[in-house]
Every structure is written in C-alpha cells, then in structure tokens.
C-alpha cells in the first residue's frame, strides 16, 4: 500500500541512492567523501530514533559508536594482527576472524546490551537531567576505553582493521537505517514517544508508559549508532578512542539539529548539507594558493564555520531547516 507517508521513505531512499551513485562514479577522493557521509547518515538516523522522537538530547551516543567499533574489531582484525596488537584478548576472540557483516552483528549486539543497561538508568531521569547523565556516561566510557590497554591499545591507535566499508556497504547500511528509523517513527511506539515529547504529563495521563518507550527507542538508537561506528572503523582502518568523543558528538548532533530533529527528511538533508560544508571548509582550512598568494593552514576554521552555521540556523529556525515537515509525493490514497 503506497501512502503519503511511505512516499517520504521512497523519496529519501532515492536521494540516498542518487548520492551514492554520484559517489560511485566520482574520483577516489570524492568517493571517500560520499562513503564517510553515508556512514555519518547511519549515525544521525540512529540519533533521530531517540533524540528526534523523544525530544531528549543525548550527548552520550558516541559511546555506542565506540563500543560497537571496538567490539567488532576484536573479531574482524586478522588473527596475526590481533596477536601483535591485542595479545590479551580472550582466546575465543583471539583465534577467530570474521567478515564485516558478522563483526557488525557482534558489535551492534554488544552496544545494544550496554545501551539497555545504561538506558534503564537514563530513562529514570527527567529530560534535562537525562541529557546530563548521558554526558557523564560518555565520560565514563571514554575514560575506560582510553585506559583499557588490553582491549583497545589505550591512547595509541588500533590499526589493521580490514577496509571492508565500501560504497556498497555504506549504501546498504544507510538504506537499512532509514528504513528502521522510518518504521519506528510511524509505528505505535514511535507515535507514543512523540506524544511524550510534545507533552510528557498529558502522554502519561493517556496511559503511555513514557519510560518504557524511551528505553526501547534508546536501545534501538544505540544499535544504529553502533552500526555507524563499526562502519567508520572499517572505513578508516584505524580506531582511536578520541575519534568517538566530543567532536563526533558535536558533528552528528549538528547534522540532526540543523536539518530539524522532528523530521527524517531533516536528518538526511542536515547530514548532506553539514557534511558538504564541512568538506569544503576542510579544504579551505588546509591552506591553499590563490593568484600566487599562499593562504596558510588555519586549524579550527572548519569547526568555527560549522558552529556559526549551527548558530545561524538555530537563531533563524529554532526547529531546524525542515521543522516537522517531511518531503512527500502527492499520491492518491484510495
């Protein structure tokens, strides 16, 4: 049954397909940019499942990207590399090597379990208190990972992950994430959660168990963000703990907020827009030559540009570019 609602899904899938197609046809550098963008899209859609529907901001989801990425790497790293870099891994992990799909399943499962454990605590708190608890949670995970040398090599980087995230894997994951986010948003539970976002007291009064729906959205969103983290690890081939800290949180939240947290079209538009601007700013801030004049590298310029962009969008459109609208195709619902 084709409804107005599903036309949004069709249009957004088409947009993602077109972007991936351009990336596939483009130069190597451009293709890398598109893969990175699609991976970020998986993370942003994951964030949208919880933040978008519940209206509770989470600053802690980078932790699930990190947990997913490291736990999948324990299994996808070639055995020889593991024996050198992580000799203290448990024997069953040390002696097996699996492909990206199995590794991703392990990473997502692990991150979801951890998400369930911490989610139980976080949903006990009211909106802003919950946001701040997620900050504390991120600090805990980062500290533990940065010092668990036997599992992560601590502050040095873990290298040698198979480079399995190509444009195909990124595309499939982005479409999958979109489908799951869409299914959840339009489901009974998604609507209940959105009701609690608009008015928590009224939602409770109509019999919605706000904590329970928040918890399940939190776990689902942790799973998707973990998938994004796993893809990123197998795209760069290198994992560091700092890769999933403040900057990751900032960039993905900016993508979501600039597009509009209430709209999945917004999540997609925001990701493409911010990733595009970030790439251009990265090239500019790397230093360049214009008409024989050397412009030196300006570290921080990219971040400043992104922050200004986010502030301007927030001041002009506090609900993001899309607000709560979605792209739709006028179809007859007969």
């Amino acid at each position: 049954m084709m409804t107005r609602r599903w036309s949004t899904f069709a249009l957004l899938s088409l947009a993602i397909l077109v972007v991936a197609g351009i990336g596939w046809a483009g130069s190597d550098i451009f293709q890398r940019f598109v893969i990175d963008m699609l991976v970020k899209l998986v993370v942003v859609l994951g964030l949208a499942v919880f933040v978008g529907n519940s209206g509770v901001f989470s600053f802690g989801h980078a932790s699930f990207a990190a947990l997913g990425a490291y736990s999948s790497a324990w299994f996808t790293l070639p055995v020889a590399a593991k024996k050198i870099f992580l000799p203290q891994l448990p024997a069953f992990a040390l002696s097996t090597q699996v492909g990206l799909p199995t590794g991703a399943a392990i990473g997502v499962a692990f991150a979801s379990l951890v998400g369930l454990a911490i989610g139980v605590i976080i949903v006990q708190l009211s909106g802003l208190g919950a946001s701040i608890a997620t900050v504390a949670w991120l600090a805990i995970v980062t500290t533990v990972l940065a010092n668990a040398d036997a599992y992560t090599r601590g502050t040095s980087s873990l290298v040698g992950l198979p480079l399995a995230t190509g444009i195909g894997a990124a595309l499939v994951s982005a479409l999958l994430a979109l489908f799951i986010a869409f299914l959840f948003k339009t489901s009974r539970y998604g609507l209940m959660l959105q009701a609690s976002r608009e008015d928590e007291v009224a939602a409770k009064a109509t019999g919605i168990s706000v904590r329970a729906v928040r918890l399940w959205a939190f776990v689902l969103s942790a799973a998707l963000v973990a998938l994004g983290g796993i893809l990123q690890g197998h795209f760069r081939g290198v994992l560091t703990v700092s890769q999933f800290y403040f900057e990751f949180t900032y960039l993905t939240l900016a993508m979501l907020v600039i597009g509009g947290i209430r709209s999945l079209s917004g999540a997609v538009i925001g990701t493409f827009l911010v990733a595009g601007c970030a790439e251009m700013l990265r090239i500019v801030s790397g230093g360049f030559e214009i008409a024989g004049l050397m412009v030196p590298a300006l570290p921080g310029l990219r971040e400043i540009g992104l922050a200004l962009m986010m502030l301007i969008v927030l001041l002009a459109r506090p609900r993001g570019i899309m607000g709560s609208r979605e792209f739709t195709w006028p179809v007859k619902t007969g």
Binding site: F57, F59, L128, S131, Y250, L253, A254, V257, L298, P299, G300, L301, E303, I304, L306, A307, L308, M310, L311, L314, L315
Partner: peptide, 17 residues
C-alpha cells in the same frame, strides 16, 4: 541547550585558531 553547545564549540575553536 544546543545553542549553548554550538557557542561552546565556536569559542573553543576560535581559541584553537
């Protein structure tokens, strides 16, 4: 909250620059 987050990021990176 998000506005303050963006402002924080802006100021921090102006200092980096």
């Amino acid at each position: 909250l998000i506005t303050s987050f963006a402002l924080s990021y802006l100021l921090q990176n102006v200092l980096v620059l």
